[in-house]
Computed example of a mutant assay.
Amino acid sequence: MAFSTQDNDEVLSEINVTPLVDVMLVLLVVFIVTAPLLTNSIPINLPKTEAVAPVENKEPLVVSIDAGGQWFVNKDAIAPELLQGNLEAAKRGNPDLRVQLQADDGANYGQVAKAMASIEKAGITKLAVITAR
């Protein structure tokens, strides 16, 4: 320890951040502990009503391409050049048509790109590309 014999009446202008860090860490711990408790829903007993018909959920149309390059629409084999016409007919029957595209890992990327182009040309805007986890 070094002691100075001079009188130094200068004001110490440094900020001690240790208490600030302590307070911030306590607030962080409080937030981490309380955040999961806020996500719980309030238990409510809903009133009973007469049965109504559920909204009809139409299944999406599934376009598949296997490793051999064969194309399928809902498990029915189809020629690649007929896909667009088939999708256009399905869209006329259901304007809100959803399509799921699934291709085998070994499928040619060019085939997948052609399928996506045919789906777009058919005017379908809701496309999901299905992959494995």
Score class of each variant (00 low, 15 high):
residue 119 I to R: 00
residue 89 A to Q: 14
residue 86 N to K: 15
residue 51 A to C: 03
residue 31 F to A: 15
residue 92 R to T: 15
residue 9 D to R: 13
residue 106 G to T: 06
residue 87 L to N: 02
residue 68 G to V: 02
residue 40 N to W: 10
residue 34 T to P: 01
residue 108 N to E: 12
residue 122 A to N: 00
residue 69 G to Y: 01
residue 57 N to C: 09
residue 40 N to M: 10
residue 87 L to V: 08
residue 95 P to C: 05
residue 8 N to E: 12
residue 109 Y to N: 13
residue 82 L to A: 15
residue 127 L to E: 03
residue 46 L to A: 11
residue 61 L to T: 15
residue 73 V to P: 00
residue 89 A to I: 14
residue 110 G to D: 12
residue 7 D to L: 15
residue 9 D to E: 12
residue 128 A to G: 06
residue 9 D to G: 11
residue 121 K to H: 09
residue 38 L to Q: 10
residue 114 K to T: 07
residue 72 F to K: 07
residue 3 F to T: 08
residue 63 V to Q: 00
residue 40 N to E: 14
residue 40 N to A: 15
residue 34 T to H: 06
residue 17 V to W: 12
residue 6 Q to P: 01
residue 89 A to W: 06
residue 30 V to K: 00
residue 59 E to D: 14
residue 5 T to E: 14
residue 64 S to F: 03
residue 103 A to P: 01
residue 71 W to V: 03
residue 95 P to S: 10
residue 3 F to L: 08
residue 87 L to G: 03
residue 46 L to E: 12
residue 81 E to P: 04
residue 28 L to Y: 04
residue 44 I to T: 10
residue 70 Q to W: 03
residue 60 P to A: 03
residue 125 T to G: 09
residue 49 T to P: 00
residue 128 A to N: 09
residue 15 I to L: 15
residue 4 S to G: 10
residue 14 E to A: 11
residue 4 S to R: 08
residue 96 D to H: 07
residue 60 P to V: 02
residue 57 N to S: 14
residue 101 L to N: 05
residue 75 K to G: 06
residue 48 K to V: 10
residue 82 L to I: 03
residue 114 K to N: 12
residue 78 I to W: 00
residue 68 G to K: 09
residue 56 E to P: 02
residue 115 A to R: 00
residue 112 V to E: 08
residue 30 V to S: 04
residue 51 A to M: 08
residue 90 A to R: 13
residue 73 V to S: 01
residue 118 S to M: 07
residue 60 P to Q: 01
residue 7 D to P: 08
residue 25 L to S: 10
residue 120 E to M: 05
residue 63 V to K: 00
residue 91 K to R: 15
residue 47 P to R: 07
residue 104 D to N: 02
residue 48 K to L: 11
residue 116 M to V: 04
residue 53 A to T: 10
residue 88 E to P: 02
residue 80 P to K: 08
residue 66 D to I: 00
residue 78 I to M: 04
residue 33 V to K: 05
residue 86 N to P: 01
residue 75 K to V: 08
residue 113 A to I: 10
residue 84 Q to L: 07
residue 83 L to K: 03
residue 46 L to Q: 07
residue 16 N to C: 04
residue 89 A to L: 13
residue 10 E to N: 11
residue 59 E to H: 07
residue 78 I to T: 02
residue 69 G to S: 05
residue 38 L to T: 11
residue 29 V to Y: 05
residue 99 V to T: 03
residue 129 V to I: 12
residue 8 N to T: 12
residue 30 V to G: 06
residue 110 G to N: 09
residue 8 N to Y: 06
residue 75 K to Y: 11
residue 105 D to E: 14
residue 81 E to R: 15
residue 60 P to W: 00
residue 94 N to G: 04
residue 109 Y to P: 06
residue 104 D to G: 00
residue 110 G to P: 00
residue 16 N to A: 06
residue 34 T to Y: 08
residue 26 V to R: 04
residue 84 Q to C: 07
residue 91 K to C: 08
residue 54 P to A: 12
residue 25 L to R: 13
residue 87 L to T: 05
